[in-house]
Computed example of a mutant assay.
Amino acid sequence: MAIKVLVVDDSSFFRRRVSEIINSDPRLEVIDVAVNGREAVDKAKQLKPDVITMDIEMPVMDGITAVKQIMAAAPTPILMFSSLTHDGAKATLDALDAGAVDFLPKKFEDIARNRDEAVTLLQQRVMQIASRRAFMRRPVAPKPTAAPQTARPTTLTRSSASTAPTQRTPVAQRFKASGKKYQLTAIGCSTGGPVALQNILTKLPMNYPHPILLIQHMPATFTNAFAARLNTLCKITVKEAQDGDVLKPGVAYLAPGGKQMMIDGRPGAARIRILDGGERMNYKPCVDVTFGSASKIYADKVLSMVLTGMGADGREGGRMLKAAGSTIWAQDEESCVVYGMPQAVAKAGISSEDLPLDRIAERMLVEVGMA
């Protein structure tokens, strides 16, 4: 049975373009279109599509408001289309905050070398996020006798409608530190990564003892806005990495989009090197590049994680870290938006632990001796 897609955009040209691409794959079918957010909400309830593609700027109701209402009434995996501008980046992050799963630029040529590549990318992305529909559950209202919950500020955390079930076992497993000593933490991710990174980083204390390298597949215009948002939400400092940055404890360095982030120097006096992305590289930034660089400088002193994402980026860099004696963990399948990158690491026998997203920060603090 084909994956059912609802296409939402106020531009008739873009609706037609996206519909043609989706319908050209026999595994996909556009079942209807909507010209604004209000129509999208109504049709999401009526048609129950497997995936929705959503524009951000629309009349009557914008895409972000529509995402919020859909996730509250008819939880569905949503792929946003946005412009590659600073304002577009902020709006896209707001859409992820509201519950959207992933995003693509409206100008396909910004992410693809030719039309065929752009077509394949969109089709693959729709199929990948469609698998999240099984995890979409309407939030259950607390029983009258339940203890009151403390309100949390609005952040990029996924709504309860789109996360995997939080109760995995009656009693949560208690973690134990391995006893290894670390000098660096490194985290790589892609699809679903912005939400996953925020989930983890907002739980870390200001005095986290190591520098943190963050490699998130993201366009160049998005990484600065994403780092700024994380910095306002986290106790640790988060910044977009710059060439020459000296690694400091309690600071997270987000690899800039379109570039590669490497480490130079020696432990305790290491610096960041930002290099050209490279025409032949599939990912800019690339987890393998940063992980491999870290393995050469820090050897067995790296605590690394591979989170949700499409593909296998992080596997070869993780292999280098493991060979040097460092630790690699993978996010578990149930809590991933796309179980691609973590699966590649797990299948290769590189990760020592598979962890649910909502407990990774807890596990990190135990491992580095802070809990």
Results as ranks from 00 to 15, higher is better:
residue 223 T to Q: 12
residue 182 Y to S: 04
residue 345 V to S: 12
residue 154 T to N: 05
residue 108 F to P: 02
residue 84 L to N: 07
residue 150 T to N: 11
residue 16 R to W: 09
residue 177 A to N: 05
residue 246 V to Y: 09
residue 66 A to N: 02
residue 188 G to I: 01
residue 316 E to Y: 15
residue 254 L to G: 03
residue 75 P to T: 00
residue 51 V to D: 08
residue 229 R to T: 00
residue 98 A to N: 02
residue 258 G to T: 01
residue 117 E to M: 08
residue 142 P to W: 10
residue 343 Q to T: 00
residue 149 Q to T: 09
residue 325 G to S: 10
residue 309 G to S: 07
residue 35 V to W: 12
residue 195 V to Q: 15
residue 64 I to L: 07
residue 130 A to V: 00
residue 341 M to Y: 14
residue 213 L to K: 09
residue 79 L to D: 01
residue 324 A to N: 12
residue 96 L to N: 03
residue 216 Q to C: 07
residue 13 F to D: 01
residue 201 L to Q: 09
residue 325 G to M: 12
residue 333 E to N: 13
residue 139 P to M: 05
residue 51 V to L: 08
residue 268 G to A: 06
residue 349 G to L: 10
residue 141 A to V: 02
residue 364 M to I: 10
residue 3 I to V: 14
residue 354 D to Q: 15
residue 279 E to W: 00
residue 347 K to A: 13
residue 84 L to W: 12
residue 91 A to V: 00
residue 304 S to I: 00
residue 336 C to Y: 14
residue 25 D to C: 04
residue 13 F to I: 11
residue 350 I to A: 08
residue 170 P to Y: 06
residue 81 F to A: 03
residue 352 S to Q: 14
residue 119 V to Q: 12
residue 367 E to C: 04
residue 332 D to T: 02
residue 170 P to L: 10
residue 158 R to Q: 11
residue 231 N to S: 11
residue 182 Y to A: 03
residue 233 L to N: 11
residue 15 R to S: 09
residue 256 P to R: 04
residue 234 C to H: 06
residue 270 A to Q: 07
residue 360 I to K: 09
residue 217 H to R: 12
residue 121 L to P: 01
residue 175 F to L: 07
residue 318 G to C: 08
residue 17 R to V: 06
residue 331 Q to I: 07
residue 60 V to G: 06
residue 1 M to P: 10
residue 245 D to P: 01
residue 371 A to M: 13
residue 333 E to A: 15
residue 110 D to E: 15
residue 56 I to A: 06
residue 232 T to Q: 13
residue 170 P to S: 05
residue 347 K to I: 00
residue 102 D to R: 04
residue 5 V to A: 03
residue 131 S to C: 01
residue 29 E to D: 01
residue 290 T to G: 04
